[in-house]
Simulated scan of single mutants.
Amino acid sequence: MASGKKQGYSEADRILLTLVLILAVFGVTMLFSTSEYNGRVRFGDSAYYFKKQLFAMSLGFLAMYLVAGMDYHFFIRLAPAAYAASLGLSAAVLVVGQEINGSKRWLNLGPLSFQPSEFAKVAVILFLVWQIQQTKSSTSGLWFMGRTLVSLLPVIGLVGSNNLSTAIIILGIGVALIFASNSRYACFLGIGAAGVAVAVLFLAAESYRLERLAIWRDPEKYEKGFQTIQGLYAIGSGGLFGRGLGSSIQKLGFVPEAQNDMIFSIICEELGLTGALILILIFGLLIWRLCVIATRCTDLAGTLICTGIMAHMAIQVILNIAVVTNTIPNTGITLPFVSYGGTSVVFLMGEMGLALSVSSHKQHFFTYTKG
């Protein structure tokens, strides 16, 4: 008689799960505090944004739970189809997308709106993992690096035409995964130089991108620098411990759309430098935990998935905080788990589910013994 036992399966990483829960609770709390004024003025409901975000967060937790319980190799097998779908959806945005606040980034699905660029981030991570796994030759050559980056150009071009920040994140994810699978580092100097050249050409291609650079250098000189200036006022007025939760003044119409990209400035105002540093610490711990899971995984695919998710989180957090503090030009990027955005929350939770799946599947084979 034959009996089988699955080896190498353990519980999902509890530290990662705890950090995700903390960020989720913190995010909806700060979102309610930041958005209640805009919700009351625009929709007559101070909890308008909060309720929509809470609904999206619930869907996100469901997605995380379902994904975490599945073998992540299943999603890798779907990667080519997911990448093709992301290209199709990104192209559809250019044709029939809904324009909100001057940006065409959404597709209407009945009463709901969907942001394909958020799906593209996950699809790119899975597609690159699949592509690296399919590579029969060495992953340390220039041919491999160039071919992998070229495969991302279609989605980078489509997404970058109306969402530069997400295109930067996708490119960063690609470089991180190539770096993780490559044993040689000198060639990355060439990639860096090429990246700088492409960035310069990309910025020069549109006048409004050059205008953003000018606004970044001297925001007080331009009318469009109003949001940046008000965000800096919010950060400065928070002091060490802040005005107190719910006591922000800048969210009362001074910081436009404060619940979106600029929510970190309101966190600084209400919770002060102390609260901001604690939030940064939690993000740092989340990124560290993803790194731990990646290094402990015995499977290349699992390692690369966690590396891609880690790169996504790190790049997006750094870019958002850098924009809010005017360290870099404004790129319109959200703060993960905290900024308002249903599509973003659902797919972020899905990514966390993938990482939890990797953490609970250390090996992926069955051992059979005869008895």
Rank of each mutant, 00 (worst) to 15 (best):
258 A>Y: 07
280 I>M: 14
334 T>G: 11
297 C>D: 13
306 C>W: 03
246 G>I: 01
336 P>R: 00
338 V>E: 02
280 I>E: 03
307 T>M: 06
240 L>K: 12
255 V>T: 10
332 G>E: 10
310 M>K: 07
256 P>G: 09
313 M>R: 01
257 E>W: 09
340 Y>S: 12
327 T>Q: 05
254 F>Y: 15
285 L>V: 11
291 C>I: 04
276 A>W: 06
243 R>F: 10
302 G>M: 03
250 Q>L: 04
329 P>C: 05
323 V>C: 06
292 V>Q: 14
336 P>A: 00
256 P>L: 05
278 I>L: 15
244 G>S: 04
272 G>Q: 13
281 L>T: 14
337 F>G: 05
249 I>D: 07
271 L>G: 12
304 L>S: 04
279 L>E: 10
305 I>Q: 02
320 N>D: 00
263 I>P: 08
240 L>Q: 10
280 I>S: 08
240 L>I: 15
339 S>R: 02
253 G>R: 08
284 G>R: 11
298 T>A: 13
333 I>H: 02
291 C>G: 13
256 P>K: 03
252 L>H: 14
255 V>G: 07
299 D>F: 08
247 S>I: 00
315 I>R: 00
318 I>N: 01
328 I>F: 03
258 A>K: 08
249 I>Q: 14
299 D>P: 06
305 I>F: 01
288 W>K: 13
328 I>A: 05
308 G>T: 01
306 C>D: 07
291 C>Q: 11
254 F>G: 05
312 H>R: 01
332 G>F: 08
293 I>A: 09
329 P>G: 07
310 M>H: 01
281 L>E: 02
332 G>D: 11
333 I>V: 04
292 V>S: 04
319 L>T: 11
314 A>G: 03
245 L>M: 12
241 F>L: 15
311 A>F: 00
315 I>W: 04
312 H>D: 08
314 A>H: 01
324 V>H: 03
299 D>M: 15
306 C>M: 05
284 G>M: 05
297 C>G: 10
306 C>H: 05
278 I>K: 00
327 T>H: 02
243 R>S: 13
310 M>C: 13
314 A>V: 01
332 G>W: 12
315 I>F: 06
326 N>M: 04
255 V>M: 07
326 N>G: 05
272 G>D: 12
253 G>F: 02
259 Q>L: 06
297 C>R: 11
285 L>I: 11
249 I>H: 12
321 I>R: 02
306 C>I: 06
316 Q>L: 03
271 L>M: 15
256 P>W: 03
337 F>W: 15
323 V>T: 07
263 I>F: 09
241 F>G: 02
339 S>A: 09
299 D>W: 07
263 I>A: 10
327 T>P: 00
331 T>Y: 09
249 I>A: 08
261 D>Q: 10
245 L>V: 13
246 G>P: 10
257 E>F: 11
337 F>Y: 15
253 G>L: 01
284 G>A: 09
317 V>R: 00
315 I>D: 04
251 K>P: 12
307 T>R: 06
264 F>R: 12
268 C>E: 08
249 I>S: 12
328 I>L: 07
339 S>T: 10
268 C>N: 14
307 T>G: 10
337 F>D: 08
270 E>S: 14
257 E>I: 09
240 L>Y: 13
264 F>V: 12
274 T>E: 04
287 I>D: 04
261 D>Y: 05
312 H>M: 13
334 T>H: 05
315 I>A: 06
310 M>V: 00
339 S>G: 10
251 K>T: 03
242 G>I: 03
297 C>N: 15
